[in-house]
């Protein structure tokens, strides 16, 4: 075990995957000598050369479409979007081409798209989004949203191993802020499995990405009041671990889903619908969602603070749920 930041864990995983499998290559904007906008790929081009760490033009469509072609030819491309927000420019290549290729033609498309996502540092409407739920509606894609350094490393390894297109949402606000123990050897975290972050009896809090850390703070505060919150870190959005959520809800009888993405048709809606349909008889209160409001991500800190769910918002939502 070694202590790593979230960013270091991702960088380490990329290096390990490239050392392990010569088919793995990276492509993205400014990822070579410059090391990427967030320096995640720093030093990799020096080790692996210009044709395994490829600087691409500002061309998300060509990057993702190019990954699909290279994957069909037997390589294992890992693309970096400079910001997750720009994946909208590659929507067609992901949704129309890559996601449907195996079902239509039987040819796997093993690509990984790394998506630096999320807000919390005045990025504004185009550098802060969490578009995971837009893609969760697309059969054929896989989506992961790690919240810890260890999960980032293990899920990235799984993503590279996976024969399907995987969207790897890495939260920018976690990059240097969050540290944790990470096994030094290669390991995988299975896509589609949640992780129990905290055992509790009174209420289930399901979350992922940067919101996990908000949830942890809120749960600690409530523990002082003798309320025990169970936190399920979903980790994967597609496929998602409904068993883990249902089991937890059946134990606590109360559910709050917390996510940084906006409210309407956010992934919380899917979770609530499933819980309502499959565990209605176990519930002591209507399941609730705490999310960003239906609004673009604002820039000014005062606005962004209002936009992003805060610890006090979580506390408030949990207390209401417990008082129902």
């Amino acid at each position: 075990m070694a202590e790593r930041t979230y960013l270091e864990a991702i960088a380490e995983s990329l290096r390990t995957e490239m050392q392990r499998d010569e088919r793995v290559f990276l492509i993205g904007q400014d990822i070579g000598a410059y090391g990427g906008a967030f320096k995640v790929t720093n030093g990799l081009q020096e080790t692996f050369g210009e044709w395994r760490v490829i600087d691409a033009p500002l061309s998300e469509t060509a990057i993702v479409g190019g990954c699909t072609g290279a994957a069909l030819m037997g390589l294992r491309p890992v693309a970096e979007m400079q910001f997750a927000d720009f994946v909208s420019c590659a929507w067609d290549q992901l949704v129309t081409v890559a996601a449907k290729q195996h079902w239509r033609a039987g040819t796997p498309v093993p690509i990984v798209i790394r998506l630096p996502s999320g807000g919390g540092f005045a990025g504004g409407p185009f550098h802060s989004q969490n578009p995971e739920s837009s893609f969760a509606h697309v059969p054929g894609l896989k989506i992961v949203c790690p919240a810890t350094p260890s999960d980032a490393k293990g899920l990235l390894a799984s993503a590279v191993d996976d024969p399907n297109p995987v969207l790897f949402f890495e939260h920018k606000h976690l990059y240097r802020r969050i540290r944790g123990d990470v096994a030094e050897e290669r390991f995988t975290v299975p896509i589609g499995t949640a992780r129990l972050e905290r055992d509790g009896d009174d209420v289930t809090l399901v979350t992922w990405g940067a919101m996990l850390h908000v949830a942890i703070e809120a749960a600690a505060a409530l523990a002082a009041e003798d309320v025990s919150v169970e936190i399920v870190d979903l980790r994967s959005i597609l496929p998602w671990d409904s068993d883990a959520v249902l089991n937890s809800v059946r134990k606590t009888s109360r559910l709050l889903v917390l996510h940084e993405d906006t409210y309407t048709a956010g992934f919380g809606a899917e979770i609530l619908a499933t819980v309502a349909a499959e565990s209605f008889e176990y519930l002591d209160a209507p399941p609730q969602r705490l999310t960003a409001p239906d609004c673009p991500v604002p820039l000014a800190p005062s606005l962004e603070r209002r936009f992003l769910p805060q610890v006090e918002d979580v506390l408030h939502a949990l207390r209401e749920l417990l008082a129902y």
Partner: peptide, 16 residues
């Protein structure tokens, strides 16, 4: 939409 994919195939050939 298949043009970027064709370019990607060529990229694989170049890499290897």
């Amino acid at each position: 939409a298949m043009l970027p994919v064709a370019t990607g195939c060529a990229l694989a050939f170049r890499i290897r």
